[in-house]
Write a protein that binds this DNA or RNA. Structure first.
Length: 306
DNA sequence: AAGGCGGGGAA
DNA sequence: TTCCCAGCCTT
């Protein structure tokens, strides 16, 4: 913390800003009617690498259809994948179905409360486990996502950006967290919200920032001192990811299993738009990868969702 | 520690 | 085009 005050002042300023300005999102417990841990878990799975605006309609649809883990567990996994739509990373749908099954069968249809048990669910990592414990149950844990990492990097470390995840990220957040669990919960949510709407990656709106007087990056004159960025992601066009997505789109829309040949053809995209330098091995490769991931099941030469 | 994994929106 | 997004899993 810097010259402008202790961490309690920071938490107070951030907390009042959050109370005033936070977006109303249906998975926040404060929302009318309140939501339970199951809703928090579903939202956190969907929000992994996917923006809030895209998640909103899917989340509402899921909660209407599967208000309890056991309701989802009663479905075929493929139904979860189908209802996942185009959110991306469809393995998350599979993992969420698996988590629902385990919760229904082994935890009395109640989402676990402690971080260790949550971490045991496939698809639940350090962020999601603490987010559920903190937001759904009010447990006092540091919750660190990409927004929070950037806020800490600027506010505390005086850097323009966060850089790749570090082992100390959780400790950094823990050092800022108010002692009172209720305040800590707000602080976690507020740090994420600040990073999402004010302290943004691209063009931060520092003039609107409620905690600018605590900001080391501002104090240093906004130096362009961003640490090395993570390696740039390979282009999507023509990638295996795109080819996988095309097969998945076909399987989601299909009312019945489709011939394998049709799925392989779908991997190449619409006939008119095929790239010139196609990898002839790509369709088979991505088809097999979907098989290995359990996103595709083959039976008598036909492919379908699991 | 590094690479793979969707897809869309914004600069 | 490139960057970024309420990450996680495998190797």
């Amino acid at each position: 913390m810097n010259r402008h005050g202790d961490r309690r002042g920071l938490a107070r300023a951030l907390g009042s800003w959050f109370a005033q300005e936070a977006r109303e999102l249906p998975w926040r417990s404060e929302a009318p009617g309140g939501v339970g841990a199951w809703a928090v878990l579903v939202s956190e799975f969907m929000l992994q690498q996917t923006q809030v605006e895209r998640v909103l309609p899917r989340f509402l649809e899921w909660m209407r259809r599967w208000p309890l883990p056991s309701r989802l567990a009663a479905e075929e996994p493929g139904e979860a994948v189908r209802a996942w739509g185009r959110l991306g990373y469809p393995r998350r749908a599979l993992w969420l179905h698996g988590a629902a099954t385990e919760i229904a069968n082994e935890h009395g249809d109640v989402v676990p409360r402690d971080v260790e048990t949550l971490l045991g669910l496939t698809g639940v990592g350090p962020y999601t486990a603490r987010a559920v414990a903190a937001f759904a149950y009010g447990e006092r844990h540091p919750v660190v996502d990409t927004n929070t990492r950037r806020v800490i990097a600027r506010l505390v470390r005086g850097r323009a950006a966060a850089g790749p995840p570090r082992a100390g990220d959780l400790d950094d957040m823990a050092a800022l967290l108010p002692d009172d669990p209720v305040e800590a919960r707000v602080f976690n949510a507020a740090a994420m919200e600040l990073g999402a709407v004010v302290c943004t990656a691209r063009a931060p709106r520092c003039e609107e920032c409620p905690v600018s007087e605590w900001c080391e990056w501002r104090g240093a004159g906004y130096p362009d001192n961003a640490p090395a960025k993570r390696p740039t992601q390979a282009r999507f066009e023509g990638s295996d990811r795109q080819a996988r997505g095309r097969i998945m789109a076909l399987l989601r829309s299909a009312a019945a299993p489709v011939p394998r040949s049709e799925a392989l053809r779908a991997a190449q995209g619409p006939a008119g738009s095929r790239a010139k330098a196609v990898d002839p091995a790509q369709p088979r490769r991505v088809y097999d990868s979907l098989l290995a991931d359990g996103l595709l099941v083959e039976f008598e030469g036909r492919a379908r969702l699991p």
